[in-house]
């Protein structure tokens, strides 16, 4: 189900819980599906003893992927026209993440209404882990 421009106002915010108590196994699952086998995400021994981090941590793209579900659940399938992020803090096993899309503007492009959102994902401590934007085609 797609959004309609008439029912949206600037400042509207949509929040969804992405994951509760992120498991190492989900990070392994993402490594396998995406093909990014960087040991920093799945190999505790390498990550603590060689790379110098307190534990393995999630791929930034896993956080972007989970945040993408919040967006597509909200704007509808095949409606995104742009989606971009910066990874602002690492995501660790055990983290709980919430993502929010906030409507910034509705514009028109090639006769279609485009909703522009700020996108932000935070962890259980309120620390921002992802910050970005999305644009989606919406109905009139």
């Amino acid at each position: 189900m797609a959004l309609s421009a008439k029912s949206l106002k600037v400042g509207d915010a949509h929040t969804a819980r992405l994951v509760e108590d992120l498991k190492r196994t989900q990070i392994v699952q993402y490594a396998g599906a995406s093909g990014d086998y960087n040991p920093l995400h799945t190999d505790e021994i390498f990550t603590t003893q060689v790379a110098g981090y307190p534990s393995v941590f999630a791929h930034g793209m896993l956080t972007m992927g989970m945040t993408g579900k919040m967006l597509t659940d909200y704007v509808g399938d095949a409606r995104l026209t742009k989606y971009g992020v910066r990874f602002t803090s690492q995501v660790w096993p055990g983290d709980t993440l919430d993502a929010t899309a906030t409507l910034k503007a509705i514009t028109e492009k090639d006769g279609a209404k485009i909703a522009e959102f700020d996108v932000k994902t935070v962890n259980q401590a309120g620390v921002e882990v992802l910050s970005g934007y999305a644009e989606a085609r919406v109905d009139d």
């Binding site: 993402y30 579900k69 597509t72 659940d73 399938d77 095949a78």
Partner: peptide, 28 residues
């Protein structure tokens, strides 16, 4: 792997009946 159970990514019959018209790839 990204925790998305939307059937548009897994169920061809369901996906056919959606606006997407078939199995889609997730945004990332």
């Amino acid at each position: 792997s990204v925790g998305d159970d939307n059937r548009v990514y897994s169920d061809a019959e369901y996906a056919k009946g959606t606006e997407a018209g078939g199995i889609l790839a997730p945004p990332t």
